[in-house]
Write a protein that binds this DNA or RNA. Sequence first.
DNA 1: GCCAACGTTGGC
DNA 2: GCCAACGTTGGC
Length: 133
Amino acid sequence: MGYWLMKSEPFVWSWDQQVAAKTAPWTDVRNYQARNNMKAMKRGDQAFFYHSTKGLEIVGVMEIVKEHYPDPKDERFVLVDVKATTPFKTPVKLADLKAAPALANMAMLRQSRLSVSPVTAAEWKTICKMSEK
DNA sequence: GCCAACGTTGGC
DNA sequence: GCCAACGTTGGC
C-alpha cells in the first residue's frame, strides 16, 4: 500500500469541501514531479490532506479511489479521484512535523514546494500517532 | 509583503 | 544543451 501527502490551499479547496464532495478529482497539479507521484498512485493508497498557506497542518486522511487519468484541461497532466476518509482528531502542524526527529527526511520537508509527495510507512505511522493526542 | 528555493522559458 | 531571466510556491 502506498502513502502520500497532498497539499491544497484551503481557500481554493479545503478539507471540508472534500468531505462534502465525497469523491472528487484532485485538480490543477502543474508540476511534473507531482504529476509523476500521482501516476504512481494505486487505488486504495492513502494520502494526507495538508492545508498550505493558511493552516499549515495536516487535517485528515484520504483514499485514492481512482487511478490517474488525463486532465481534460491539460492533457500533459493527470487527475486522480480521492475521497476523505478520516479527519484527524488533532491536526498535525508543520512546526510539529519539523520538530519530529523521525520525520527529518520527509519528502515534503526537504522539498517544500512539491505539492504531491510520497510518505514512507514509518513516517505515516509517526504522523498518525501525532494526530491522536 | 518578503524572500528562498525551485521550475520553466527562450536566446544563443 | 547551457544558462540567465523570470515566474511560482509557500513559509515566515
